[in-house]
Design a binder for these strands. Structure first.
Lengths: 351, 351
DNA sequence: GGAGGTTTCTGTATCGATTTAGTTAGGAGT
DNA sequence: ACTCCTAACTAAATCGATACAGAAACCTCC
């Protein structure tokens, strides 16, 4: 019946009696041929069902694919359900879209070296979050020449996008400590590359923290503690392994179920998700917020601002983080590490 | 200083004094050469910083890219924040990941013909939701030979994945009507390709509904109405344009603010997002649920089951929908339209 | 020792475009 | 009429791999 093979640019050129160069130019460089011929080629292409130059061949020849890969440290399932990651992706997609690029999603794997080979098709890479196995850039099975930007973690000499973590955390802790707590505590997120979902000794684990972003945030808290006459080493700290309700809940339950005289009355949380889980579990236990327990978050996700009581938190613009990263990859902005500013949102959980 | 150009398979072969075929085989077909040579090639490749065969060239030659494109009808920003779409993506990603494929995300555009050319790189396509401009398959600027599956809408003779919409909606309506309402009403979602965010005449708009999935759901409702002695034509119907709080809210407010004697006492909603918005706005107005107002949803998203009052709804397994679609594309499952089963969840909003 | 069968390796055509350098034709200027 | 310039078009090299057909080497067995 019909041709067994897909029609190619060459077939079309032969059929029209013109060179392949002209057909190519008809699609890519209108200035290189007469409008008349161009129109003729284009209409004949349509008639024969030629859908335009093949992306695979084109990208091989030109070296560019118009595809940007986003490597997410966590699993895709997690990332798609996380408000902050979703916002980041929105921001990235917005910019890529506006410039005719598309987004290749690579889910986090325990071992970076097992990344699918097809990922090397991308023109650039945005890496989000700490890759457990990523110690050195050389381990990345990516073509070394492509632009790469890391979001929310530091990677060798690569450009990074994050927020002013230290000042932001100093500010919110400073605000929280204005009403002096008797027993402050910190609930931490992903401190090191090693899994840990429990209480940790405050000072001891701090130095080897390879999650530099979390280290900066803790530094902000600690500076505020010191300024308010609290020895940071005396502030208890818990670590949460994954930023989800299910993983948070047991650790938080453990904290809230401490004997009354040991239970913290101020909880500085590393994320809104954690803080919201604290709110939920505290309410279940009949604790009054903020009278019995004051809570702060980090991120400024929508849910925290809709729900009652409204969360006291630091708003970071994750959509903008995505935009910036994408613009760097596309070369619309210099590839230099950037820190976006944040905003202190004083809600009802810690007035 | 170092080589200006990236090292290629050919360079490596020359350097080693073997053929390019052997190097290629070392990476792709271990059985085709001696373990000794293979090891030698691989280690030398590592030493010289060769990161493996270039994906662009490989995909041109083999015709496959290990990339599956997901085309989302709505904007990416919307899709990433929608629980159902996120679940679908998780399911797709899960299967693709397990089989070494990656996911190319194409955000919805008003005009399908403007899809970026790079999309033609994909081995297959999953289309989710009604594309406003997509009337005929030929309009898709995709290589015709590639597998394509549509999720949650019907497209010509293409295979489709959705759930048993009609029976599911019949079941939940039948349950809701067990307590006979005085004034039932339906809140609809995306009925036609034309935007509409307001009340609509019940019968008139039904026939041209090109959103076949919504039409099936309505048919289920109507069958139940008829069985319970209610003339479907007398049931008022509202249409929601986008499944988000902000877009729902004004329409729902309009419904709830109707004079008491006109206000519905049973609202059958096409999605949990709509139903949850009804709950929120009804509570703000001091309406008692389910005494003053009974509400049903559709989807079975997590939020609806966590929040109080628990939603009465139909649970559909969107993750599984994604898995099925992905398995079809990968050829792990026959390319035949499938309807997944659903489950009636009786919660507190309509006991 | 030679026929026959494996295993291992190589030479080269090919995938489908883009692009450079170059040819041809037509027009302008003197 | 001749040179020179520009516009329109083309021939062929190239991008970086894969895979086929076939050569070479190595066994095995009568």
């Amino acid at each position: 019946m019909s041709s067994p093979r897909r029609i190619t640019l060459k077939d079309l050129a032969q059929h029209l009696g013109v060179s392949t160069a002209s057909v190519s130019n008809a699609f890519n460089r209108p200035d290189q041929l007469s409008p008349k011929l161009r129109e003729h080629i284009l209409s004949e292409a349509r008639r024969l069902g030629y859908r335009g130059p093949d992306a695979k061949a084109r990208s091989l020849r030109t070296g560019r694919s118009q595809i940007v890969a986003v490597v997410l440290a966590e699993s895709l399932t997690y990332s798609l359900n996380d408000a902050v990651a979703s916002e980041l992706l929105s921001g990235i997609a917005e910019v890529l879209d506006a410039h005719g690029h598309t987004l290749l999603l690579l889910s986090g794997r325990q071992d970076v070296s097992q990344m699918p080979g097809s990922s090397s098709i991308a023109d650039g890479f945005i890496i989000y979050g700490l890759m457990p196995s990523l110690l050195l850039l050389d381990e990345l099975p990516l073509p070394g020449q492509r632009p790469l930007v890391a979001v929310d973690f530091d990677l060798e000499g690569q450009p990074t996008v994050h927020v002013d973590d230290e000042p932001a955390c100093h500010a919110i802790a400073d605000h929280a400590l204005a009403t002096p707590p008797r027993r402050p505590a910190v609930i931490n997120l992903r401190l090191t590359r090693h899994p840990c979902n429990a209480r940790i000794a405050p000072d001891q684990e701090l130095l080897p923290a390879d999650r530099t972003i979390t280290r900066s945030r803790l530094a902000g808290f600690h500076r505020a503690f010191a300024e308010h006459g609290i020895d940071p080493a005396t502030v208890p700290m818990w670590n949460i392994e994954e930023n989800t309700f299910d993983v948070c809940a047991p650790v938080i339950a453990e904290i809230l179920d401490l004997p009354h005289e040991q239970r913290p009355d101020l909880l500085l949380c590393m994320s809104d998700r954690i803080a919201l889980t604290v709110v939920t579990l505290a309410e279940q236990r009949g604790l009054r917020i903020p009278e019995d327990l004051r809570i702060t978050g980090f991120d400024g996700i929508a849910e925290g601002q809709y729900r009652s009581p409204r969360l006291t938190t630091v708003r970071q613009d994750s959509v903008e983080k995505g935009r910036v990263a994408a613009r760097m990859i596309l070369g619309l902005e210099p590839m230099e590490s950037r820190r976006l500013t944040t905003e202190l949102l004083v809600g009802e959980t810690c007035p």
